[in-house]
Amino acid sequence: MATAYRERRGQRAAVVVSPAQYERMLEALEDADDAAAFDEAIAEEGSNIPWTQVKLDVGWE
């Protein structure tokens, strides 16, 4: 995996990665967002909806 960066005035201005690496990075970000959303949902206060009710609500039963 080769990664290159370019500098402008001594500061990193751009990073070049392969398309495959870019896709892996996007997937990792999506996974992190999903995990954060799950953690937020679990931390919410209030009553829980039973799984049987959820299945009925979405028409799975």
Results as ranks from 00 to 15, higher is better:
4 A>K: 11
55 K>N: 00
42 I>N: 00
19 P>N: 08
35 A>H: 13
21 Q>M: 13
3 T>G: 00
7 E>G: 00
15 V>T: 15
10 G>S: 02
55 K>R: 15
40 E>L: 08
50 P>I: 09
2 A>D: 03
1 M>L: 01
11 Q>G: 05
10 G>D: 02
45 E>I: 05
11 Q>S: 02
34 D>N: 07
4 A>V: 02
29 L>R: 15
20 A>C: 01
46 G>E: 07
39 D>I: 05
19 P>S: 14
50 P>H: 11
39 D>G: 09
45 E>Q: 12
32 A>Y: 08
11 Q>W: 08
41 A>H: 02
27 E>L: 10
33 D>C: 03
28 A>D: 01
17 V>F: 12
21 Q>W: 01
8 R>T: 04
36 A>K: 10
18 S>A: 11
29 L>Y: 11
36 A>D: 09
16 V>D: 13
33 D>R: 12
21 Q>P: 01
27 E>I: 05
15 V>E: 14
29 L>G: 11
59 G>T: 06
39 D>P: 01
36 A>E: 10
8 R>H: 01
13 A>D: 14
39 D>C: 04
24 R>D: 10
17 V>I: 14
53 Q>K: 11
43 A>G: 09
27 E>A: 12
39 D>L: 15
3 T>F: 00
33 D>F: 08
9 R>N: 03
4 A>R: 07
43 A>N: 10
52 T>W: 07
41 A>C: 05
41 A>R: 09
49 I>T: 15
35 A>C: 03
39 D>N: 14
33 D>T: 01
49 I>F: 07
20 A>Q: 11
45 E>L: 10
25 M>W: 13
40 E>W: 10
35 A>L: 13
32 A>E: 10
25 M>S: 13
46 G>M: 05
20 A>K: 10
16 V>I: 15
46 G>F: 09
25 M>D: 08
58 V>I: 15
20 A>N: 06
24 R>S: 10
5 Y>T: 07
27 E>F: 01
56 L>N: 04
30 E>W: 08
8 R>Q: 09
30 E>F: 06
13 A>Q: 11
36 A>F: 02
28 A>N: 08
17 V>M: 04
60 W>M: 12
60 W>Y: 09
34 D>W: 04
42 I>W: 02
7 E>D: 01
50 P>K: 13
51 W>R: 07
37 A>S: 06
